[in-house]
């Protein structure tokens, strides 16, 4: 057991970091915001923590804390800028945001180390610290998945207009989602930079966006557990697929396609609906449609307007 742990320490750490990265995409998705800005925050956090550690040799929690606060503020400001955008337009704008951060890092000169990135961010961050942060985050998110908070989040995602008429501040909820997403992404990026002691602009690319999205889609987009399942799968799958040789990326892509078609709610959603089926309730019954009774209505209207009594014609 100890031997396995030590042999796989990198993968174990990566699982938790990927978990946080996935959450930074999932939190906005849960309120119906299709944003990849969390991946940009990952870059912001990684650079902030690395710069603080290299230049000022601050303790890990200060470097990470500063990175989280900085990215949360950027996330909030970003939400104000993109307030009018929705759906795919918003997704595009956030992709642009991520890639701009990568370009800025490449051209940041001495501060960001240019295309080579930064080296030697040695700190006192331990695996235990990473796990502790993840546990706290998971606990806090679990609180948003029950009771009144869950109801509000469901309402904002499914029907913003309805939410407003129920007294929920949709705009505030969305801004909050961007802020939290920024904090989570930065937390993942900062801890990754400190554990690996390096950061480079190539890390923040389109593939990181794809990874973050697929973890959430395949794990499940409604609960932190889904993000965790996705993180476990996509951290460990590559080493398990190693037996398939160079075809592993093809298998990867096929899994994504199958998930998009057959598991819109992810593995977690699949398990949950199976469980519900076992308990004898299906949620896939046909949705309620208004019955077509235009003719009846019309007759009633004509009756009423022509002053006939209800029994008159029948």
């Amino acid at each position: 057991m100890i031997g396995w742990y030590e042999a796989n320490i990198v993968l174990i750490e990566a699982t938790f970091l990927n978990f946080l990265l996935a959450l930074s995409i999932q939190v906005p998705l849960r309120v119906g915001v299709f944003s990849f800005a969390g991946v940009g925050s990952y870059g912001l956090g990684a650079y902030t923590a690395a710069i603080l550690t290299i230049r000022y040799d601050v303790p890990a929690f200060v470097a990470i804390g500063a990175a989280v606060v900085f990215a949360a503020v950027v996330g909030y400001l970003f939400s104000l800028i993109v307030a009018r955008l929705n759906g795919l337009y918003l997704a595009m704008a956030t992709i642009a945001f991520v890639l701009i951060i990568s370009v800025l890092a490449t051209n940041g000169g001495e501060l960001t180390g240019g295309a080579n990135g930064l080296y030697g961010a040695l700190s006192d961050l331990t695996t235990g610290g990473v796990v502790a942060v993840c546990v706290v985050v998971a606990f806090l998110l679990a609180l948003t998945e029950r009771g009144p908070l869950r109801r509000r989040i469901e309402a904002v995602r499914e029907d913003p207009e309805l939410s407003m008429s129920m007294g929920i501040g949709v705009v505030t909820v969305r801004q909050l989602a961007f802020t939290v997403s920024g904090a989570l992404g930065a937390c993942a990026g900062a801890m990754n930079a400190l554990l690996r002691t390096t950061v480079s602009p190539e890390e923040i690319n389109f593939h990181l966006i794809v990874l973050a999205l697929t973890m959430v889609i395949i794990g499940g987009s409604r609960s932190w557990m889904g993000a965790f399942i996705g993180a476990v799968i996509f951290t460990w799958l590559p080493s398990m697929l190693a037996t398939t040789g160079r075809w592993q990326d093809v298998v990867y892509g096929l899994i994504i396609i199958l998930a998009a078609i057959f598991m819109p709610t992810g593995l977690l959603g699949l398990v949950q609906s199976l469980y519900q089926k076992l308990r004898g309730r299906s949620r896939t019954a046909a949705p309620a449609e208004p019955p077509a009774e235009e003719a009846v209505e019309e007759r009633a209207m004509l009756q009423a307007l022509s002053g006939e009594s209800k029994e008159g014609v029948r």
Binding site: R281, R283, T284, A285, A286, P287, A288, P291
Partner: peptide, 9 residues
């Protein structure tokens, strides 16, 4: 305790 999709219109 039913789901909305199980209800009649």
């Amino acid at each position: 305790n039913a789901w909305p999709t199980e209800l009649s219109y």
